[in-house]
Design a binder for these strands. Sequence first.
DNA 1: TCAAAAGTGTTAATAGTACACCCATGA
DNA 2: TCATGGGTGTACTATTAACACTTTTGA
Lengths: 215, 215
Amino acid sequence: MTNYSSQSKFFVSVDCVIFGFVDGRLKLLVQQRPYSPGKGEMSLIGGFVEKHESIDTSAQRILKIFTGMDNVYMQQLGAFGEVERDPGERVISIVYYALINADNYDSHLSEIHNAKWVDVDHMPKLCFDHNEMVNKARQVIGENIKNKPIGQNLLPRYFTLSLLQSLYECILGIQIDKRNFRRSIAEKEYIHATELIDKGSSKRGATLYEFTNSK
Amino acid sequence: MTNYSSQSKFFVSVDCVIFGFVDGRLKLLVQQRPYSPGKGEMSLIGGFVEKHESIDTSAQRILKIFTGMDNVYMQQLGAFGEVERDPGERVISIVYYALINADNYDSHLSEIHNAKWVDVDHMPKLCFDHNEMVNKARQVIGENIKNKPIGQNLLPRYFTLSLLQSLYECILGIQIDKRNFRRSIAEKEYIHATELIDKGSSKRGATLYEFTNSK
DNA sequence: TCAAAAGTGTTAATAGTACACCCATGA
DNA sequence: TCATGGGTGTACTATTAACACTTTTGA
């Protein structure tokens, strides 16, 4: 055998589990699926891989179409390849998760594409195997939040420790003790206090923090 | 848009990072690539996904072809999809890693396919992006060995603690203190001592252990 | 008798968990 | 003055890391 011509070819799609931290809650961007099968059902943000682009590039392109955003934190979650996962035709899906700062995103684009935020703790039924993809993504970011500065991607540049704590609580799905939390943050070299005070959320005012090497 | 017919299709391959514990060393099964491009270069064990099978099934089929083994511990590592990763044609590769008990494997098959074990600490240059796949796989099993009974898949049914320790040391690439190691194993509910004694490896004889729920 | 691998405990350091009150301020 | 969210310290527990000698027995 000297070439691949006897092999089968497949449609390959990219589906993106896009998380945002909106109104103090962890949310996920979903769209109404614009075509059959599953037309009108809730769906992850996705599209097909194109001939000329790598799968990572494809994920970035799709994210940009729906959010207008570049340079976003995205990681691959894996490939989903059950034969009948898409009831229309055989499609192998490569799944990515993205963490975006919802302040920077272009809500006009989401309107065009019938996309909206849904709370991760009240997930609607999504089409195909998309709920499974979301579950896996949540698990992975839960494992990462403790050791990596991924919160950077979900928060505005300056944030209070109370907001950061509520982000951790949403991601982990647990309540955290305030004193222990603040000590654990103080020990992380990648988060530090600034001179700034936020007067918006309390009468006393709260110190604003930032991530150290805002990439 | 109501169907997918305007989309591109791709070759999709499966590559398997197959680990075995042979002669007290962690090894990897590699083959001489039988076709161009890269013919004759060292390569992971791989093949193309077929029309009628899921990607998981495809990985199992390929593993069986090269080892004769069924029911092997295999996990997906992710998809590799750079446009030029295969210099012949565009191929998206889904990578799995497998842990096998090298005693059970059919060495006749590996001869047929020009496959052989290589030491993970002396990896040859593999074709395409296969070395990258191996590095990622090693990282993942290193993270898993501490908390999951994955050693079960690499060892014979009965094993001494010295052998188990050398497995951990190979996977983690570090030296482990014998007393701390034996205590940590004693605390794991999924490994227990048997009444059996191994007289092969020492004059005194060593207690043989086994995994609790040998699936 | 000795070489070679098996087996065994204690201490120190670190990380994680539980828990309750005062502070500053704007309304 | 009081309601609201901001901010702080200590004691206990669990986990991890460091460290050296005795046992058994076949050659």
